[in-house]
Amino acid sequence: MLVVVSWVSFWLDKVKQFLKGDAVPARVSLGVTTLLTMTTQASGINSKLPPVSYIKAVDVWIGVCLAFIFGALLEYAVVNYYGRKEFLRKEKKKKTRIDDCVCPSDRPPLRLDLSAYRGVRRLPIFKRISELLSANIDISRRVDLMSRLTFPLTFFSFLIFYYQAYVKQSRD
Rank of each mutant, 00 (worst) to 15 (best):
V5M: 14
I55V: 15
V5D: 12
P104N: 11
I62H: 02
F151P: 12
Y166Q: 09
G71N: 11
M1A: 08
R141Y: 08
M1I: 07
S115I: 08
P51Q: 12
Y76W: 11
V60N: 05
A165P: 02
L2K: 01
S134R: 15
K20L: 12
E75F: 02
S9R: 10
M146Y: 13
R141S: 14
P108Q: 02
L66Q: 11
F151I: 01
M38A: 14
K168M: 10
V79N: 02
V58R: 13
W11G: 05
T39M: 08
V64A: 10
P51F: 09
F68E: 04
C103F: 09
C65A: 13
K56S: 08
I45D: 04
L153E: 05
L66M: 07
L66G: 00
V143M: 01
F156W: 11
F18K: 04
F10T: 07
Y163I: 02
R148S: 06
E91D: 03
S134V: 10
S6C: 09
R97S: 01
K16A: 11
G71I: 02
Y82E: 06
G63H: 03
I137D: 07
V4Q: 03
S105P: 04
S157L: 05
K48G: 04
I139R: 14
V8G: 12
S115E: 03
S157I: 02
V52I: 14
F87T: 05
W61F: 09
G31N: 01
F126G: 00
Q169L: 13
A67C: 04
E75A: 06
R128Y: 10
W7G: 10
F126W: 15
G71C: 03
L149P: 00
Y163P: 00
Q164L: 12
T40F: 08
T40R: 08
L88Q: 06
C101E: 11
S157E: 00
G31E: 00
T33E: 08
V5E: 13
K93C: 00
K48L: 12
V52T: 14
R148E: 03
R111C: 06
L112G: 05
D144P: 01
S47T: 14
T37N: 10
Y166C: 06
F70P: 01
I160H: 09
P108A: 06
I125P: 06
V28L: 07
R111Q: 07
V143I: 14
Y163M: 05
G44P: 07
A72M: 14
R142H: 01
A57R: 12
L132C: 11
R128H: 10
L153D: 09
R141F: 02
